[in-house]
Design a protein around this nucleic acid. Structure first.
Lengths: 121, 121
DNA sequence: TCGACATATGTCAAGTCTGACATGACGCTT
DNA sequence: AAGCGTCATGTCAGACTTGACATATGTCGA
C-alpha cells in the first residue's frame, strides 16, 4: 500500500493494517449472528401466536417444514433474507423488523457453544 | 387440505388459498427490494463520507472492487448479508441499520425499469 | 401402547451468491 | 494524448443456501 493511500485511510479513521480487517469482519459477523438470533426468535413467537404449525408457515412461504424448523433454531444454513421473508409472511411490518434489527443484543446470555463452520463437511 | 386445518388458518387471519401465498410472497419480495435499496444507498453515502474508494472498502471487507460496485448499485446478486457487513464495516451501528430497515420506502420514485431475472444467462 | 401430529436434524441436488478477473467508461493531471 | 484513478458491468468456478425428503424425538389423546 502506498504511503499516500495509507494516510488517506488513517485520516478517515481506519487503523490501517492487516489486523483492522480481521477485527472489522468479526465485528460484523458477531453482529449478524445476533441479529439473526433476534429475528428467528421473533419469527417463532409470531408463528406460535398465530397458532399455525411450522408446516403451515412453510406452505405459505413456499418452503418446507424442515427449513422453517432450521429457521427458528437459527441454523447456520438460513439466510437473513429467508428470515425476513418469514417475518413479513407472518405479518410483521417493516418498522417492526427494523426495531428488532436495531435492538441491542441482550446481555450475553450463555449462548451455548455455537457450532463451528462445516456447513458442508 | 383438511377442513379443520383450513379453519385454523382462517381463524389466525389467513385467506387460505393459492392466491394468499402468492400475495404474501410478492409483498415480502417488494419489501426486501426496498430495504436493499435503502441499505445500498446508505453504504454508498457512508463510504463517500469516509473518503475511501470502493477498492479500499473491498479490502476491508475481504472482497473486491467489483462486488462493492454491485453492492452500491443494488445489483441483484448482492445479499442482505453482504450489505449489512459493508455497513458495519463502514462504522454503522446496529441501531442505525435498524432505522434504515424500519424506514418506510420513499414515495415510489420512478425506479427505472428494474431488469428481469437472468442473473445467469 | 399405538397412532397422529409437531418439531428437530441430516443429507443432497439444484439454484444462488461471492471473490476474482477482465474490460469499458469517465474525469484529471501531466 | 497518454497515463492514472475510480467506478460500472460481464463472466465464471467455487462456496453457500434452498426445498425436499428421510428420519428421530417428543407430546397428546384414545
Amino acid at each position: 500500500m502506498k504511503a499516500a493511500k495509507r494516510k488517506k485511510l488513517e485520516a478517515a479513521g481506519w487503523k490501517v493494517g492487516s489486523v483492522s480487517q480481521f477485527l472489522e469482519l468479526s465485528d460484523a459477523e458477531a453482529m449478524l449472528v445476533n441479529v439473526k438470533l433476534a429475528l428467528s426468535k421473533k419469527a417463532k413467537e409470531l408463528r406460535q401466536s398465530k397458532k399455525i404449525t411450522q408446516n403451515d408457515l412453510a406452505k405459505l412461504l413456499g418452503s418446507s417444514q424442515s427449513r422453517v424448523a432450521k429457521l427458528e433454531t437459527s441454523d447456520r444454513s438460513v439466510s437473513l433474507e429467508l428470515l425476513i421473508r418469514a417475518l413479513v409472511t407472518l405479518g410483521a411490518t417493516r418498522a417492526q423488523i427494523g426495531k428488532i434489527v436495531g435492538a441491542k443484543a441482550a446481555p450475553t446470555k450463555k449462548t451455548s457453544a455455537s457450532k463451528k463452520r462445516p456447513v458442508k463437511a
